[in-house]
């Protein structure tokens, strides 16, 4: 399948009082048509910033996309003026976003209907009445009961899960090619999470859109994503198919992440193994492997400088100096 979105060497920096923060430091990834991608990492690793960067939604100042290409449908989005007409027609029209906080991501003083209708009017040039009818259909589609009455309600009259459904309805309303869901289920309870993810999967299938799920929750991507990118300190440190990441995980960070997730199929009472230490401060990072201070194999690490991504199987890439292949990890740990 053809690549819908190709991001190459994207770099986003923030000028802060403490110094230059390289929030996203040269990441490359691609999304194929109708594919579900997972982008995983801890808080502050740059996953949200990378997604806001592709749509040029980083507030400048203090942030700035300093390098890279975002090729979408053959055109580099970063070449479009940040709030020019071309960029605006992509936002919401071709690529839409679902944000983390359903409680605050909808405008409290406008009805949800108005917030849907204005998008339909803008991108699909629908006349008002048709747009209102379509808005009701969309709300029904995402499972809002009594949608024709609820359309005139305000966001505070909906629960968190319902608001996130409305965000999903907004995201798919203008038949986009790609939906970016930035931690879509972080702020809702577990049962609602599952419902929302199923809903998103249905929408992706039904409207033939691609989906990027940005999350720190490995369980979320395990079930839905076909390919996964793992980010650490502003860079992608491992990427591959779901199987590559979950079964054949290679990077010590990925392995550590998986060890810190409770599993149903493991013996009860077994302790989880946390990754020791804290994520690095992104201000003035030295040019070494960012995971090195926390890496259990650091003493045996042969490499200097930042490890480049290298291919270890068909779709599996990893940025690690150590060659684990053919050797047991216990061998290194000693």
């Amino acid at each position: 399948m053809a690549a819908l979105l190709k991001v190459r060497n994207l770099k986003t920096q923030f000028r802060t009082e403490g110094g230059l923060v390289k929030a996203v430091d040269g990441i490359s990834y691609h999304v194929d048509e109708q594919e579900i991608i997972g982008l995983v990492g801890e808080s502050g690793c740059g996953k949200s910033v990378s997604q806001l960067s592709t749509l040029q939604l980083i507030p400048n100042p203090p942030g700035e996309v300093v390098d890279g290409e975002v090729i979408f449908e053959g055109k580099d989005l970063l070449k479009f003026g940040a709030n020019g007409e071309k960029m605006r027609s992509v936002r919401g029209g071709k690529i839409s976003m679902i944000f983390q906080e359903p409680m605050t991501s909808l405008n409290p003083v406008l009805t949800v209907g108005e917030q849907l209708v204005e998008m339909l009017e803008l991108h699909l040039k629908m006349p008002r009445q048709a747009a209102e009818k379509r808005a009701v259909e969309l709300l029904e589609m995402v499972g809002i009961p009594d949608a024709s009455a609820r359309i005139d309600n305000y966001p505070h009259q909906f629960s968190g899960g319902m608001r996130q459904r409305i965000m999903i309805a907004m995201a798919i309303s203008c038949n986009p090619k790609l939906v970016i869901a930035d931690e879509p289920t972080t702020a809702v309870d577990v049962t609602t999470q599952a419902q929302l993810l199923e809903l998103m999967k249905d929408m992706v299938r039904r409207f033939n859109v691609s989906l990027i799920i940005v999350t720190h929750n490995l369980g979320v991507v395990a079930r839905y994503a076909q390919r996964i990118y793992v980010m650490y300190a502003g860079r992608i440190i491992e990427s591959g198919t779901s199987k590559d990441i979950f079964i054949d995980s290679y990077h010590p960070y990925t392995v550590g992440l998986l060890k810190s997730v409770p599993r149903l199929d493991e013996q009860r009472g077994k302790k989880l193994v946390p990754i020791s230490g804290l994520p690095p401060n992104l201000v003035n990072m030295p040019d070494i492997c960012a995971f090195r201070p926390r890496c259990p194999y650091a003493t045996q690490c042969p490499g200097e400088g930042y490890p480049e991504l290298r291919q270890i199987s068909d779709q599996h890439f990893v940025a690690c100096h150590i060659d684990f292949q053919g050797k047991s990890r216990e061998f290194y740990a000693k």
């Binding site: 749509l55 939604l57 709030n83 960029m87 605006r88 027609s89 992509v90 936002r91 919401g92 029209g93 839409s96 976003m97 944000f99 906080e101 605050t104 991501s105 909808l106 405008n107 409290p108 406008l110 204005e118 998008m119 803008l122 991108h123 965000m167 907004m170």
Partner: peptide
């Protein structure tokens, strides 16, 4: 956040400022 949402929807600056 809802202003960021408005930007992500592709609205014009004028609409975002005066309406949202």
């Amino acid at each position: 956040d809802y202003i960021r949402t408005a930007w992500a929807k592709g609205l014009k600056e004028r609409v975002i400022v005066l309406k949202h």
